[in-house]
Nucleic acid binder design. Structure first.
Lengths: 229, 229
DNA sequence: CCAGACGTAATGTCTATACATTATCTATTA
DNA sequence: TAATAGATAATGTATAGACATTACGTCTGG
């Protein structure tokens, strides 16, 4: 079992051992890995223990299993690192900076894209009084009527919504645009500077709760994602 | 157990049921959920079955568990959608387009950032003869000596590496910059246009395998990430 | 040569039980 | 009151066995 972590539970050591062998290339994509019965013997344990180890590898996307056929190493995927798209308020306060949201504008409007009356907000996120992001948000009032009476100078709309409405689905789109005149002013950057745009749409069941577009200074703000040990 | 999927295994129905109750706000963040013993009685099953259901919720980040204390609903996290950062070659061919990588430059150099001799490449990814991305890549020759003899006009370096070297860790940084003169020419975009930048660094164990910087036209290319059912 | 039937090898699920581990709570003691 | 020690309730891990499910291979019969 190579040089595997002592103190770890057996099922964890088994999954880690197999993971290492896959990552080292000893077990190659498409190749069949030993059947549960053989692994029982190899590690001298019950089938449930082996099964738990293999279930973990399925969850991590490292193997796939087919009844009667066996378990097979999957192709490595570059396409599933975990992306951290933070709640800006949480991110700023987490690193000990003073956070502030400046509400610029709030109107109830009709929106073609979203159902029913919509609360349209614009504002700026500040960290230590430095503008971090410009935000344009729409909140579906039929789903979140309370939004109309909430005070977004105390809490950012995003943070408030997170507590107020449990979502069931989120979708993000990340792109880049040149700063519009308004964004230049709000973020204090040069005309036409490259900005990172995060668009987020949040659903509860089948109705859109909120759609938001956050614009960051592309050179100072970066999203990070990592995958692996 | 509300209106839960028939045909699903019991442990899956239990976890889904609890997930629904959390998402619906019936079980709120910080709140304690019933202990395994009670859930056994509620669902009329063995503790291992309940345990499997709860383990899944831990994996999904919906609850956390503490011995002696119980299981608690975690704060909803916006920060872990799965980001699809594709192998460009795979992405292009997957949607049926003709893919081509044009190698512009290849030199063996020394690099302060990476250990040992490094193969430095620049090139352009094309989809249907339209430039999609400009790429600057460095490959650590001490880790991947074969890279020096590989033909990157047949396969993109990224795709080739994926097959040649199993990685153990990947890190991505996503930002935005204004197009440099060279990028303008290569991608056929206007001077100073906003570009989306994906920087990826790949490790095998403790050594960097490759570091790459891919630059996309920010207005036509977007990364997407989603989370939820 | 092909279509269909079928045995069977593998995974999938579930149970009942046992003991380990650990943080919380309580009771005791200084 | 405060520190310490111990009891205990919850999760964590593991076992052995049972039956369900599925699709791979093979063996038919046409």
């Amino acid at each position: 079992m190579s040089l595997v972590r002592k103190g770890w539970p057996l099922h964890r050591r088994i999954s880690r051992d197999l993971e290492d062998r896959i990552r080292a290339g000893e077990l190659r994509p498409g190749q069949r890995i030993p059947i549960e019965h053989d692994l029982m013997q190899t590690y001298g344990c019950a089938r449930m223990t082996v099964n738990k180890a293999l279930s973990r590898l399925v969850g991590e996307g490292l193997i796939e299993r087919r009844k009667r056929a066996g378990s097979f190493v999957r192709l490595p995927r570059l396409d599933a690192p975990v992306l951290e798209i933070p709640d800006i308020e949480v991110e700023v306060t987490a690193r000990g900076d003073r956070y502030r949201f400046e509400l610029l504008n709030a109107h109830v409007i009709a929106d073609d894209d979203l159902d029913g009356p919509v609360l349209a907000l614009t504002g700026v996120h500040y960290a230590q009084d430095r503008a971090l992001a410009f935000e344009e948000r729409r909140i579906c009032l039929s789903v979140v009527p309370d939004a109309q009476t909430a005070d977004f100078t105390v809490q950012s709309p995003g943070h408030w919504l997170l507590q107020a409405v449990p979502w069931t689905r989120v979708e993000h789109k990340i792109s880049a645009v040149a700063a519009s005149p308004e964004v230049c002013v709000r973020l204090g950057i040069e005309k036409g500077a490259a900005c990172l745009v995060v668009e987020r749409r949040t659903w509860k069941d089948d109705s859109v709760v909120t759609a938001v577009r956050q614009i960051f200074d592309g050179t100072t703000y970066r999203l990070t994602a990592s995958f692996g040990k």
